[in-house]
Design a protein around this nucleic acid. Structure first.
Lengths: 159, 159
DNA sequence: CCAATACTTGAACATTTCAGTCGACTATAC
DNA sequence: GTATAGTCGACTGAAATGTTCAAGTATTGG
């Protein structure tokens, strides 16, 4: 998984959408204005989001975009994967080289990192971001720190 | 922190270096040949690694590069940070906007993700990669999975 | 000393991605 | 039927990737 500003834009836009879709479809023009993202760039991003069934479009006056599923069913990983799609992953992932030992060591490291990043991003839904972002973020951080330091704290409050 | 193939190349090269430095300085030409990375590209990468005091150079015949510190003191995060340096991080990290609530929500999410990625990469040293990569990788994965699933497994065998 | 070795630096380059722009088109509500 | 708003495709400039060429400088072995 690659992390670029493109994914950031997409997530920002999706949060805006999630927050406003209760009063009908949300226009890209509105998101563009509020989030200061170019309208045409949003069109590209939402084209991909739509083709990945993350959002649905409503054409005509009063139209716009709405979520294709509930906020809880859309993870950050979904959004990034839809937008950043060239996910050909570890450049030795079955395709070529990876012949000698060294390459496979780095290969393992990278696939593992990718996996963990993906798991983290998949564990955060749009709902989490819209509702109580602080609690979630802090809880995740504490939990991670514990693991690294070998500490043991059996119940972490998550608000 | 950004993840690109550039960092991958750097880590691959560093592993090669770490494995061979016991018999004196390692030449970039050798790394280039073994790892199939263009020599000039390696020169650029090692220039950065040298300026970050991760490797040291030995000039003249019989020269090459060697690690500036022990393998245990060099983390993957160090290598990536040295090579991928434009780490301006979250594009609202103190600089501008971040005015309304939505932006800060995504801001929190990203800074947190960056933090966790960094912690993970910082926890993996060159030594880990050269010695027993499998054990380390597997252990990290299991631990992560447990946290996500809420499972509880008190002693995870490592190696 | 001297020549081969090997790092050092800088520039140029093709390719790709990023981010944004433009223009033409289609569907639909009023 | 017209204004609204999504859809599509091509096209742009800037940056990053990955590579190559060329001209250095330091140092060691002979």
């Amino acid at each position: 998984m690659r992390l670029t500003t493109k994914g950031r834009f997409a997530v920002t836009a999706m949060i805006d959408l999630a927050q406003r879709q209760s009063n009908g479809p949300v226009t890209l023009a509105g998101i563009s204005e509020r989030q200061k993202i170019s309208l045409s760039y949003l069109e590209q991003l939402f084209g991909k989001l739509r083709r990945h069934s993350i959002v649905a479009s409503v054409r005509g006056p009063g139209g716009g975009y709405r979520l294709a599923r509930g906020m809880g069913e859309v993870s950050v990983a979904d959004i990034i994967a839809a937008v950043d799609e060239p996910l050909d992953a570890t450049n030795c992932g079955g395709r070529e080289n990876c012949a000698d030992e060294q390459r496979c060591m780095t290969h393992d490291l990278w696939t593992n990192l990718n996996k963990r990043m993906h798991e983290y991003l998949a564990s955060v839904s749009l709902q989490d971001l819209v509702n109580q972002p602080k609690a979630k973020a802090v809880a995740a951080t504490i939990s991670m720190d514990d693991r690294l330091r070998g500490a043991r704290r059996d119940s972490v409050a998550v608000a």
